[in-house]
Design a binder for these strands. Structure first.
Lengths: 250, 250
DNA sequence: ACAAAATGTTAGGCACGCCTTATTTTTTTA
DNA sequence: TAAAAAAATAAGGCGTGCCTAACATTTTGT
């Protein structure tokens, strides 16, 4: 019941594991957790008691384990840190997924809020800035493997020139579309929030602001709701909300 | 005496503190360490015994503390991680020094070798790639504070165009100079290693390769030796070695 | 040189977080 | 439905890393 108890690294790991198990199969059992975290069953019992005492999980001996609202919030926070770090390593540093995931696992416990937000913003910036982009990251990968020479930079510059020409011919109105028209897995840059009033407010609060990168994670059959990821947060938007967001495909 | 014992986070902290104290005043005392790490004196005694047992420090009760060669190597490694992280946070993420330093302090213990190298390379890449550079990072700072709109991107693109023009007029031979002609604090990109034979080999081993960013940290009165930083490593180069390196100012 | 102050060490304790071994409870299966 | 298997818990131990309090050894000031 404690309001905002500080979680130890290992309790964060337990919470994260529970979150993932529940996402797959409604409720978790101690065995699932011990298997996932590779610790003895008795260690799990102790951890579960701690988490229950902090009001983060519903737990009774021999019973299934679920997250309380506070627990879900705390778990999502850990997961967001984890995913943001992993995405940064994969998308910006061009590190392999497995290695990135493992590194995220360790760093997620010690990174400060501010630095995390900066990392998220930087990854976003790299994607939307014309000077960045996936080609640029590919160039970084080349630089890592082969070092850099002036000739490579010349090539790089001509790539920018090509991009510029494309932009120019595309004119000022590019492929601005509505969020609801995106397909699953597509990413876009928020161009404008056309929603007004409360909806507008709600969207901004959730991190949906012009310039932000938004990714469609799942789309219900009728497009309602649409699950998206923005700034590391997973959001579920109603169709009416999605319609109030204009985006530009990346 | 242990060859390559794994150090706990706290022992790494102790080693790092000892390294910094010794850099300032020849030898460390337990009090210096307890003051710096903000722990009780008795904790220091225990840690020192551990470090001595691992053959990393020379330690006798009531006596001054110095690093063994192995200890110096281990300490330098920790310091490199710390500095590389801090530099990344400051130079790439545009985070304040104090905050960056504190974050580095925590992350340095858990970051993997590979990811660290990638971070170092990325920071370097941002500096030497024409698409990156300090102006680009400044743009990132703006993006963080105000979000991004298409107009900003237009400005950004015109900046690149200006850069391109400058490069064009500069022609193909830019300001390639010799490393020995750099002043203290200047940074440059390694263009070519003109040294041959053993010197060449030694330089490459130390991370001085074409494309690398090199920074002059200290310059002896007669330019021999010159202390530089490359890829997070602090090196001391003899004048004869410095003369074998052609660089381009950043 | 010798007391006072500063510094260093020992001893004992506490909290974590993990382990192993043994026991209890629940679920499966024959 | 009862024995076997699986899952969960309890008890006790270990290592780390920190603390306080008490004691030992320098160093310093006069």
């Amino acid at each position: 019941m404690t309001a905002n108890a500080v979680l130890s690294e290992s309790l964060e790991d337990y919470l994260e594991a529970i979150f993932h198990i529940i996402a797959e199969k409604q409720a978790a059992r101690a065995k699932d957790i011990s298997r996932q975290l590779k610790v003895a069953g008795s260690s799990v019992t102790g951890a579960l008691r701690s988490l229950a005492k902090k009001g983060l999980i519903n737990y009774a001996p021999y019973d299934l384990i679920t997250l309380t609202p506070a627990g879900r919030k705390a778990a999502k926070d850990v997961v967001r840190r984890h995913e943001a770090l992993r995405d940064f390593f994969v998308n910006v540093l061009a590190v392999g997924y497995a290695e990135a995931d493992e590194a995220a696992c360790r760093i997620e416990h010690v990174i400060s809020k501010n630095i995390l937000e900066r990392l998220i913003q930087f990854a976003e910036f790299v994607e939307i800035c014309p000077r960045g982009g996936s080609k640029w990251i590919a160039g970084f990968g080349y630089h890592c493997d082969h070092g850099d020479t002036r000739e490579n930079c010349e090539k790089c510059i001509s790539l920018i020139l090509e991009d510029l020409k494309r932009k120019k011919t595309g004119g000022k109105s590019m492929s601005i579309i509505n969020l609801k028209d995106l397909k699953q897995g597509q990413r876009a840059r928020v161009e404008k929030i056309t929603a007004r009033g409360d909806t507008n407010k709600r969207l901004v609060e959730m991190g949906v602001t012009p310039g932000a990168v938004i990714e469609v994670e799942r789309l219900a059959p009728l497009g309602d709701p649409v699950e998206v990821k923005v700034k590391g947060y997973h959001l579920s938007l109603r169709k009416s909300e999605a319609e109030g967001i204009d985006v530009e495909l990346i």
